[in-house]
Simulated scan of single mutants.
Amino acid sequence: MANQRLLPIKNGYNFRDLGGYPTADGHQIKWHRLIRTGSLAHLDRNDLTVLDNIPISLDIDLRAPDEVKKDPDRVPSQAKYYHLPVFEADETDASHSDEEIAAQMQQPGNGYHHMIDVYHRMTTAASAKQAYQKLLNLLLNNERGALLFHCTAGKDRTGMAAYLILSALGVEQKIIMEDYLLTNTVTQEFRNHWLQDMRNHGASEALVTNRAALASVAPDYLNTAIKIITQNYGNVNQYLNNYLDITPTEIKDLRKLYLD
């Protein structure tokens, strides 16, 4: 399969290979080993064939139990499925309806501040700790094929996972932020259409702005998590070691598995 960042998935969005990113010490991430995505619930046979051709060996679902029950994954044929909920309910609002959002997002700035709170909790909540610990341990035991990790939109819970994984592999923070913000580029058409449809149906501009904040990523969001990590642990490597219990030896093992 060709090396390409954005995968040709028709019935899902934000499907991306993390291969090719360089590390600070001159290596690069192997292609077809780490895949970050949005929901797998609506994939058709052709989409699953794309994933089977990589192939996907592990499907890591970071969504809350109610999201999984409502829209279960269409699991690639060679993949083993793991459900590792970052939150017990969808705190990111990625799976909530416009009506549900409208009930709590009428004041300007609500969406932005809500996402700041989400990233604080992803860095400190016990459920998030357990999910990301297990994800990193599964990475350590995946010797062939690709580990795919996802939530609903593939941007927040997935974005935090990508930050931790890329940091563990030694990718520079500037490149990690660029990958994080790539979500906005690859989902722009979808988001613009969605937000315009809200306007066409009479939504207030405050609600549209809040919905836009929920549906996108921003440097402030990820930097919130980074700031908490730095304040409490000094740097992300110490966070991985002292909070997520990933030892320096295991970091070296991850790099052997996923770097050229």
Rank of each mutant, 00 (worst) to 15 (best):
F15Y: 15
L18G: 09
G19Y: 14
P22A: 04
T23R: 11
D25P: 00
G26W: 01
Q28M: 14
L40P: 05
D44K: 15
R45M: 03
N53I: 01
I60S: 08
A64Q: 03
D66L: 06
E67H: 14
E67R: 13
K69T: 08
P72S: 03
R74C: 12
V75K: 14
Y82S: 10
P85Q: 00
T92C: 06
A103R: 09
A103P: 00
H113S: 01
H114R: 05
V118D: 00
H120T: 08
R121K: 11
T123H: 00
T124F: 09
K129Q: 13
K134N: 05
L138C: 05
R144A: 08
H150P: 12
T152S: 15
D156L: 14
D156S: 11
T158S: 14
M160Y: 13
S167N: 05
S167T: 09
S167R: 06
I175Y: 01
I175R: 07
I175L: 06
I176D: 02
V186N: 09
T187Y: 01
Q188D: 11
N200P: 09
N200I: 03
A203E: 07
S204P: 00
A206T: 05
L207W: 06
N210G: 01
A212M: 10
A213L: 00
L214D: 07
S216H: 12
N223D: 13
N223T: 11
I228V: 10
G234L: 09
N237A: 04
L240Y: 10
N242T: 06
Y243F: 09
Y243A: 01
Y243N: 00
L244P: 09
D245I: 02
I251H: 09
K252S: 13
